[in-house]
Design a protein around this nucleic acid. Structure first.
Length: 578
DNA sequence: GCCGTTTTCGGCCCGACTGTTTTCAGTCG
């Protein structure tokens, strides 16, 4: 039986985007004109940036970067489910060449030559050609190139392409503490996807300002690791950990620091857009400054803010420098949340369940951070592996917290719970117990592989309970490790709005859950957000920084986030259902 | 392949580094 669903099932927007990207990859491998290749990539990005669904778009050529040619490709694909352009390319280019693009130093042009001249069709045949020493005989190739490719082939498959940000942050901090000790360094900063706080990161980028580049370079080479690149302005190190971590240092003059930082922060699309804007004004942006193309005079800036100001733009936070559209859309009026806006942390654990520090130690740590309030939210009974609290224990902890509130007059401690949503949808505690607490977080820690309908039934039960204030880590994802359970995000957001339930941004860098696009949707729908560290350890309280930074990616404003509110406002809100 | 109120042809962001070359192509971010 054919249903409406079947008819629409065919091709969706994601499929089209993937098709265009695939065409670009094949063209690249064919050694096609790079601008033509880029045109397909641009078209894919532009389609993705368009808010409409495929069926809502009537004329593809209205979308920037999509012209007659690409529109015809899309239309054929949507109507027939196939693309003759892609099919043609696939006939000409062996599929096995695609993974070769992963090898550093190999681009489309080179791969095309390897195919034509040595009949390399996949990883295996490239390996053979290398082993036979045929590669070095090719014009423009040499022993070194062959060696590099051999090494890369050995690495392949062993090492992931990108690493979760949580994996990279400890390395970052180590490097930063080293850089702080190098006295010739005047100023340094994270750059690249690290500074933009991407969820996964390929390599670590730093920009360094100094008057003594040679001395700095020497110091950098003393860091553990092998130097892969070592030029006057750039040092690349390969740190050996579980994997090889690549770290780029860009060394510039202090006067060039602001423009270099902007340049190396990216994203690539953001930079392209900025340079186009400069060009329209008769200027040229490079990492060294802004050049007036007529006079040749190069202007540098004290800060990134001054750089943006030069183009009559507000300082755009690195976290939102993405597809270039932020340049048009961001204004200072849309002020995004800052760490200083945060007045408390509303999700943390103690030794009562699976935390590493006592109640009082966590309180002391939060006082040190200058918080106005905090919530203790240990696990509930169901989560036995985490030492979940029985109702009796909850009441006992509640009493203890009340007593501690007498002791401290500079911080208010909310008595709470992180209550499990059980696999069958029931909640772990009765309403009566919940009503005794200041704050109730509900979350899923079990049966991740249930169908979407059951997951949504569980979430719905939690959202509709008047005592539940927050849904923690709403999708359960762990970046780079698991996708999380199946959530109908539109439904979740709608329910959160209806029931005035808060959705959490879990600031643990391994989670960052909700994802920024969902945060953005939630905020647009008027749903309240909370940024919590879910600390199981005092040091985890520092994740607030990461959480706030990540929230910016969703263009989150302070007013949307309940833990920026004053204590009385917050308490009044939490009492709404009780 | 896309784009255009300086352009319908000739650009398309810009520069560093490597490995191979004796002046530069390809790759990378």
């Amino acid at each position: 039986m054919r249903t409406v669903g079947d008819i629409n099932m065919g091709i969706n927007k994601k499929d089209v985007i993937r098709l265009l990207e695939k065409i670009a990859i094949y063209m690249e491998l064919k050694g096609e004109n790079p601008f033509k290749t880029a045109a397909f990539r641009k078209a894919a990005a532009s389609l993705e940036a368009d808010d409409r669904s495929l069926s809502e778009i009537t004329n593809f050529t209205e979308i920037p970067a999509i012209g007659k040619g690409t529109a015809a490709v899309i239309e054929e694909f949507v109507e027939d489910g196939v693309s003759s352009v892609l099919e043609q390319l696939q006939e000409e280019v062996p599929k096995g060449l695609i993974p070769l693009l992963q090898i550093p130093g190999l681009g489309g042009k080179t791969i095309a030559r390897l195919y034509k001249e040595l009949n390399v069709t996949d990883v295996e045949s490239l390996r053979e050609v290398c082993a036979a020493g045929k590669l070095r005989k090719l014009k423009g190739f040499g022993k070194k190139t062959e060696e590099n490719i051999k090494n890369a082939l050995e690495q392949m498959g062993r090492q992931p392409d990108r690493f979760p940000i949580a994996y990279m942050l400890p390395f970052t901090e180590q490097i930063e503490s080293y850089l702080k000790e190098v006295k010739e360094i005047k100023q340094f900063s994270r750059a690249g996807s690290l500074r933009r706080l991407s969820e996964t990161i390929k390599d670590l980028d730093f920009v360094i300002a100094t008057e003594h580049p040679k001395a700095v370079k020497e110091q950098l080479l003393k860091l553990d690791g092998e130097a892969a690149v070592s030029g006057d302005t750039k040092v690349t190190l390969h740190l050996q950990a579980d994997y090889t971590i690549s770290v780029d240092f860009r060394i510039v003059k202090p006067s060039e620091f602001a423009t270099a930082l902007h340049h190396f922060t990216g994203s690539a699309e953001h930079n392209v857009r900025m340079r186009q804007i400069a060009k329209e004004r008769g200027e040229k942006i490079s990492e060294y400054g802004v050049e007036n193309t007529e006079t040749g005079k190069v202007e540098t800036f004290q800060t990134e803010k001054d750089f943006f100001k030069h183009f009559q733009l507000p300082w755009i936070p690195p976290e939102i420098r993405m597809n270039g559209k932020e340049i048009e859309h961001f204004s200072e009026a849309k002020q995004l949340i800052e760490l200083a806006d945060i007045k408390g942390d509303l999700h943390m654990h103690t030794t009562w369940s699976d935390g590493a520090y006592s109640l009082e130690e966590m309180i002391e740590a939060c006082r040190k951070k200058g918080y106005e309030y905090m919530a203790i939210t240990d696990h509930s009974e169901f989560l036995r592996v985490a030492g979940g609290l029985t109702p009796d224990r909850v009441r006992k902890q509640n009493e203890e917290i009340k007593a501690l509130n007498e002791k401290y007059d500079d911080i208010f401690i909310l008595s709470g719970i992180e209550m499990d949503i059980l696999p069958d949808g029931r909640l772990d505690f009765e309403d009566e117990l919940l009503s005794e607490l200041d704050i109730v977080i509900a979350s899923i820690h079990s049966s991740f592989f249930q169908p979407k309908s059951q997951i949504m039934k569980r979430l719905t039960n939690a959202l509709q309970n008047p005592h539940v204030d927050i849904i923690a880590h709403p999708t359960g994802r762990l970046i780079g490790r698991r996708d999380g359970y199946e959530v109908d995000m539109d439904m979740l957001i709608e329910l959160a709005k209806e029931t005035d339930t808060v959705l959490e941004l879990n600031a643990n860098p391994a989670r960052l859950d909700l994802a920024y696009s969902h945060l953005q949707k939630a905020q647009e729908a008027g749903v309240k957000i909370v940024i919590n560290t879910d600390a199981h350890n005092i040091s985890h309280l520092e994740y607030m920084d990461v959480g706030v930074s990540y929230a910016k990616k969703g263009w989150i404003r302070p007013g949307s986030v309940i833990n920026t509110w004053k204590k009385d406002e917050l308490l009044a809100f939490l009492k709404r259902g009780d």
